[in-house]
Amino acid sequence: MKDWRYWLAEQRGTLLALGIFIVMFVIYTSNHPAGFTANVVQTAANKGVLLAFVAMAQTLVVITSGIDLSVGMIFLLTNCLASWLVVGTPMQTTLGVIAVLVAGLLCGAINGAIVIYGRLQPIVATIATGAVYYGIGLLLRPFPGGSVNEDLADAMTGRLFDLVPASLVVLLAVVLLIWVPFSRSVLGRAAYAAGSSETAAYMSGVPIRRGKFAAYTLAGLLAAIGGLFLTFFTYTGEAAYASGNAYTLFSIAAVVLGGVSLFGGKGSAIGAIFGALAFRTIGDLLFVFDFDPLWQPLFQGVILLVAVSLGAFALFRVRNRLEWFL
């Protein structure tokens, strides 16, 4: 087989997500009263990147065949933290940004340590740590409020050369600086291998523990970048339980739409980004077509339900009925 065919087979999920996104976005912009203008793209990009960062975080963990139900809460916690720290002179702002990112890394590392070295189930462990992170967020911001360095916030949510949304540029930079090096490194390969078959990976001497730990830690970092951006958009910090839960939920939907296998070992964060953008666009379509906003939660829920049910088609390929039971 030719090289490009391998590449195509590997990227099928990502390309499918890209296709879905493009179709959705074309429908969206062609029905939008303002049409395909820089403003529409900027608004869509700003909303989309928030979920894209959280979805990337979720992807890293899902690839190791785990799940992180605390990403939404890390996102909230870092949002609350940023509304305290990312203020003042450029120097103070820089330190604040670094502190927020380190806090995210720390949250991810705690998750990783508990799941990998504590040998707990990722679901329960991350629900519990999520409660802790939410509690800390609430401690930091009992009421919505705070502020952020508005120059930085405007620069991050504005447009470069009056054309390209800055948030998309940051997203691209994060992909190039974090995802690409990680997925090509030994640790990244180990994370994939651990998700694919942990025993086989262990037998082959792959550093699965370090790989998984790196995946959980980087997931915390990516969620923190998302939280930072949320602060840039809203100028405030708010510990809203429902919002954190929604982001966790949507990140799973985005990951599934983006062709990442929930059983681990398959998929890429780039697919999850397109999944996230597509998911956001689906939500926006409702507004373009003048649906009652009340229907939005139901609509998103149904899409999530359908998206996760699509995985069931793999059952038709099963020859031996025992393979139903993992």
């Binding site: 599934v256 939660p297 829920g301 996760v308």
Partner: peptide
């Protein structure tokens, strides 16, 4: 359908909330 329980129950939770 052999969907992992935490995923499908999250999804039905979202649908029930929507309803």
């Amino acid at each position: 359908l052999r969907i992992p329980s935490m995923i499908i129950t999250l999804a039905t939770n979202a649908v029930a909330q929507g309803l």
